[in-house]
């Protein structure tokens, strides 16, 4: 017991200890940051070829998770005129069109259309009983495939790194806690700066050890897709530029994919601003703003790759490649 609280560290003069502690925290944070960079070695892999049969929904999911997946499916149905968007006051509503008969729909589109059996507020899409819940099984399939191709951080990688993260965090907490107890045992109660520094250290360690949702390879692949289809985005949005005009039907090219839907998948719905699909874009801008301001606990719970790669989309990887389509944690 004597040795525990009667040693140079325990009895170190407070300001000196704070300096040593700050250096220690900095060291832990740097080690965690380096370990995070090293754990993702996918930048050494060749970028995957752009598939012959391209799936806009998979790209949307890669770019922004389940919320972007839901957005792109809804856009496809709006484009096919089986869903309608109306903006009223601060709310946007999406409902089934009365006259249009749904043609050949994919399963994911059928389930989405069924969810719109009644008129829905656009923001409800992302809620606890929202469309995103209905699309979870599709998102899981995409997530598994993208993880296998090393485009998304896998649960295994996240779990492997988690040990490093907790060692770092606990060592910061333990060092601060020990000094605090030693100070209290020695009758010194001026521990405010020590507590503040410890809390900052733990927060910093947590922050730097958040694994991005997308791997380096995933980012490179998305960048390649955006380069490949940049011209398509310009053309597709130009062709749909006149707001208020009659909406054209979705087209299929030789590759069987609509250019505008693919552009939304690759770049996000924000590219529709100023086009005849502006009401769709505005509906999601509004719902995004609502979700972002009320994200609270749900945001924190999926900021780590390991806890949201299976479907949730509010990730730190979002900012790197969303193309403007998913801001905030509600995205």
């Amino acid at each position: 017991m004597d040795l525990l609280f009667e040693n140079p560290i325990a009895q170190m003069y407070g300001p000196y200890f704070l300096a040593v502690y700050a250096v220690f925290i900095l060291g832990v944070v740097i080690v965690l940051a380096i370990a995070k960079r090293l754990i993702d070695r996918t930048d050494r892999l060749p970028s995957p070829a752009i598939p012959h049969k391209i799936d806009p929904y998979e790209i949307a999911f890669l770019r922004g998770g389940i919320n972007e997946l839901a957005r792109s499916v809804v856009f496809s149905l709006v484009q096919n005129k089986v869903l309608e968007v109306s903006n009223s006051g601060k709310d946007s509503f999406i409902s089934r069109s009365k006259d249009q008969v749904a043609g050949n729909l994919r399963n994911i589109e059928k389930i989405t259309l069924d969810w719109f059996g009644e008129t829905r507020n656009a923001k409800d899409i992302f809620g606890k009983s929202g469309l995103v819940v209905q699309l979870k099984s599709f998102a899981d399939v995409y997530a598994t495939s993208l993880e296998q191709r090393q485009l998304l951080t896998s649960d295994e990688s996240a779990a492997g790194f988690s040990m490093f993260k907790w060692i770092g965090i606990l060592s910061i907490a333990a060092a601060g806690g020990y000094k605090m107890i030693a100070a209290l045992m020695n009758g010194r109660f001026n521990i405010t700066f020590l507590v503040i520094l410890g809390v900052i250290g733990v927060i910093a360690a947590r922050y730097v050890s958040k694994l991005p949702r997308m791997t380096k390879l995933g980012n490179a692949y998305l960048e390649r897709l955006q380069l490949a289809f940049g011209e398509l985005k310009v053309r597709a949005t130009r062709e749909s530029a006149a707001v208020g005009q009659q909406m054209p039907s979705a087209q299929t090219t030789f590759a069987g994919v609509d250019p505008l839907l693919l552009s939304v998948g690759v770049f996000g719905g924000s590219i529709l601003a100023g086009t005849m699909y502006d009401s769709y874009n505005k509906a999601f801008e509004r719902s995004q703003a609502v979700s972002a301001s009320s994200c609270g606990a749900s945001c924190g719970s999926c900021s780590d790759a390991g806890s949201c790669s299976g479907g949730s989309s509010c990730s730190s990887g979002c900012g790197s490649g969303c193309g403007g389509g998913c801001g905030g944690c509600g995205s």
Partner: peptide, 14 residues
Amino acid sequence: REPFRSDIFLNRTE
């Protein structure tokens, strides 16, 4: 040619 860039990826099999 640059204007073909998107189309060549949409029509890769051709």
